[in-house]
Design a protein around this nucleic acid. Structure first.
Length: 276
DNA sequence: CCTAACCCCTGCTTGC
DNA sequence: TGCAAGCAGGGGTTAG
């Protein structure tokens, strides 16, 4: 499940190969994965063909391709989306729903088994409108601060786990990195956000930055579907301390890790080490 | 405004 | 072995 570190890894792989590439053809075999104009494969294709990719950036879990002529391509990988750079001759693997081909003999394949993601064509600045405009601060920028986290949490009754999964609070944290960050911060997933102290928020802020930076350094976490733009898996799953380790021994205290549902998401934590 | 519930979707795992 | 139910979950929408 691609979260910020996985999306950033994909971004880097795409940028290496596709900046300055010119889109020559677009083929859509599952129109519902064209999110803008919704389901309109023809308009999507016509808007893209002939344009050059000028930059590839990331905002939260979204990828933003800046194209020539005031157009943008915005991608969200959902649960199982993959963006793979291949040769323009490469045959599509199963669940490949959109293919762009470029000059220089390259192609970009969008694969998505669970079909939760998609690609969107924008003809006006996507950063100024939802969903990008609604995102909270980028966690690895100066915009993300412990004090900001503390202020936003005031009066909120929902669980801290749900709070940090809210993309309006922080952009890019998903279930894996939320569990890992809460473990590092020593916080129970169900603790009410409004009951976090300033010190809690400082520790949480630090933990979130740490796990995201480590995730990027490892090339992301490959749990089920995730691979980078070159098809390689990431390595951060080997370093997970709680996510996916239900029932196993805590790496710090040795007691068994517990799994609970918080805000509809499975959450693994150590009842002993995460006592506040 | 805030929160919870539901939906989308397929493939893997679990249970009988 | 076969089949069905359960589970995974980001983000959008709807209901309360």
């Amino acid at each position: 499940m691609p979260e910020l570190p996985e999306v950033e890894t994909v971004r880097r792989g795409l940028a290496d190969k596709l900046v300055q590439a010119r889109i020559e053809t677009v083929r859509v075999s599952l129109p519902k994965q064209v999110k803008r104009p919704q389901g309109d494969a023809r308009a999507f294709s016509q808007g893209l063909c002939g344009r050059t990719i000028q930059a590839i950036d990331r905002r939260g879990k979204y990828l933003v391709f800046t194209l020539s002529g005031g157009h943008w391509l915005v991608a969200h990988l959902g649960m199982s989306g993959r963006l793979l750079v291949k040769s323009s001759q490469a045959l599509p693997a199963a669940h490949t729903h959109i293919i762009l081909t470029f000059d220089r003999g390259l192609a970009l394949h969008y694969q998505d088994v669970r079909q939760f993601g998609g690609l969107a064509l924008w003809t006006e600045d996507p950063y100024l409108q939802a969903p990008l405009a609604k995102l909270g601060p980028e966690p690895l920028s100066d915009d993300f601060t412990a004090e900001g986290l503390y202020q936003k949490s005031r009066g909120r009754k929902l669980a801290v786990k749900s709070f940090i999964l809210d993309q309006k609070i922080i952009a890019g944290v998903g279930n894996i990195y939320a569990d890992e960050a809460l473990f590092r911060a020593g916080l129970r997933p169900r603790k009410a956000a409004g009951r976090l102290s300033r010190k809690d928020c400082q520790g949480l802020h630090r933990a979130i930055c740490q796990v995201l930076e480590e995730g990027i350094a490892a090339g992301g976490s490959s749990i089920r579907d995730y691979v980078g733009a070159d098809g390689h898996t990431g390595g951060y799953q080997l370093t997970h301390r709680v996510y996916g380790r239900k029932g196993q021994a805590c790496l710090v205290c040795g007691r068994p890790l517990k799994s609970i549902i918080v805000g509809g998401r499975s959450s693994v934590y150590c009842p002993h080490c995460q006592s506040s």
